[in-house]
Lab assay of single mutants.
Amino acid sequence: MAEQVALSRTQVCGILREELFQGDAFHQSDTHIFIIMGASGDLAKKKIYPTIWWLFRDGLLPENTFIVGYARSRLTVADIRKQSEPFFKATPEEKLKLEDFFARNSYVAGQYDDAASYQRLNSHMNALHLGSQANRLFYLALPPTVYEAVTKNIHESCMSQIGWNRIIVEKPFGRDLQSSDRLSNHISSLFREDQIYRIDHYLGKEMVQNLMVLRFANRIFGPIWNRDNIACVILTFKEPFGTEGRGGYFDEFGIIRDVMQNHLLQMLCLVAMEKPASTNSDDVRDEKVKVLKCISEVQANNVVLGQYVGNPDGEGEATKGYLDDPTVPRGSTTATFAAVVLYVENERWDGVPFILRCGKALNERKAEVRLQFHDVAGDIFHQQCKRNELVIRVQPNEAVYTKMMTKKPGMFFNPEESELDLTYGNRYKNVKLPDAYERLILDVFCGSQMHFVRSDELREAWRIFTPLLHQIELEKPKPIPYIYGSRGPTEADELMKRVGFQYEGTYKWVNP
């Protein structure tokens, strides 16, 4: 592979701008107003304001973009700056750019259920340069409990009458099928589907988006991507930290609602779906819905739930269990780990287990898709061969690698495990991989909904998990304890083995 010439960040961002501006969906010269509902909250200060700053800094926003914060707290732009700027990672050389960014910011205080507050917000936006005809993007960085009041008031008082209007809704989209349907029906009564952007930030990850290209742009994968060759698929999300004093919020939802029903299920769809007619948003989402419709409700015998306990040999936070978090209700049975087996009941995947695993306070930070292939028929190497695996590593250190057998150097035919490896950090030294939120917010500006969740996708996802969630809430089974920093409950490994996964433990990928 030829040595790549190092590029400056300015040059890299210039390439990104060229890609972005050559499309006809990006209205570079139009006025846009980006409204952050819930501007005083954690999500706004840690993710949304920093993301908008990065896009502005790199010249990736339309030229005439204004940012308006809205929340109940009586704040000023200076207050917003004070709480969000520490997350910007701005350099001293960017000081003038930073001043320009905050000059485009404003803030309006108001209630979430008060019509007069929204009329005041609308008047404020109209007073901005060309504000009355601007395109408006409303980001709901809010708890779902206020979605209905907020969307109703936005629709009645704050819509642009000339430009387009788009609304970005953060997960969780309800707690179960019934609450999700209620919320979807409410929002759909106010906005068209092409105006609604239900954001799952995992769909903005580079390697998640790469799944489609790997599958449908490489001839070698087509013939082997089926039940005849693939023994099982494992989708993993692991965090090495616990709730760390923020367990009160987590306890309301648990690990299945927080990660599995959305992030992991979306990745499953991209692995299992048929080739779409095109890369058009609805063509892709149509195929994802077909996959979900082929999955039956989760069966309790295919589920393992766990909850982390303190590690007596650990240090600091590792010595504390979930129930030691003062914000967690006493005696909570909320799971911090889950392993679930699903089956896609169609011709391509009949009988292939899709194993979804996620948890907190585990032994490493990792998100990946792992396809394990069947054993080689007619073994001539005296059971020395391990199964081939194709691994798409989402985070950290984005990579695609194939675990395969090669001859060990020497005189004899002794096979050993090795890999074919594409590590993004080595291959793409001159490429700026956008943060997931950067990519998705740019998608909203461009009107691309491919990486957002459609209402029928959402409904099918909740259909699969709601009976299990209701059973857990009714019966309150005690989750299996696992030690902070471990791989999780051993019962999860036993479940995976029972459905056909072979864990060798003899080879570990190392970032080159």
Score class of each variant (00 low, 15 high):
Q178E: 07
A6E: 15
R182C: 15
M207F: 01
I36Q: 00
K46D: 04
Y139L: 04
F56A: 02
L130N: 05
H124P: 00
G204F: 03
V233G: 09
L60W: 06
L137P: 00
G204H: 02
L130V: 12
D79T: 12
V68P: 00
G242V: 02
N122R: 10
Q111A: 12
W53G: 03
I168Y: 01
C158R: 04
S189Q: 08
F221G: 02
T10G: 04
Y202I: 02
V208Q: 04
A103F: 12
D24R: 09
G254D: 03
V68D: 02
I48K: 02
M159A: 07
V150F: 03
D42P: 01
N153F: 12
E156K: 13
I196M: 11
I167F: 14
E148W: 09
I80M: 14
T91Y: 12
N226Q: 12
I48M: 05
F191Q: 04
N64L: 09
V146T: 08
L75Q: 07
Y202F: 13
A141T: 10
I230A: 03
Q11T: 14
R166T: 00
G222L: 14
S29M: 09
S123V: 13
I80E: 02
V213W: 05
R215E: 04
I196D: 01
T31C: 09
S179F: 03
Y107T: 10
L20Y: 14
V213R: 05
N165L: 08
A231T: 11
F241H: 10
Y49I: 06
S132V: 14
C232S: 12
R120S: 11
I67K: 00
S184L: 06
R215S: 00
E239S: 01
I33W: 06
S29H: 11
A127D: 15
A149M: 14
S184A: 12
E252N: 14
A116P: 10
Q133Y: 09
G131S: 15
I199V: 04
Y147R: 03
V233H: 01
H186L: 05
M125N: 07
K46M: 03
V12D: 14
Q119C: 12
R257N: 03
T76K: 13
T65A: 12
W54L: 09
F56V: 04
I187M: 15
M125G: 07
N105I: 11
P50H: 01
P172R: 00
K95C: 09
S180W: 04
L55H: 09
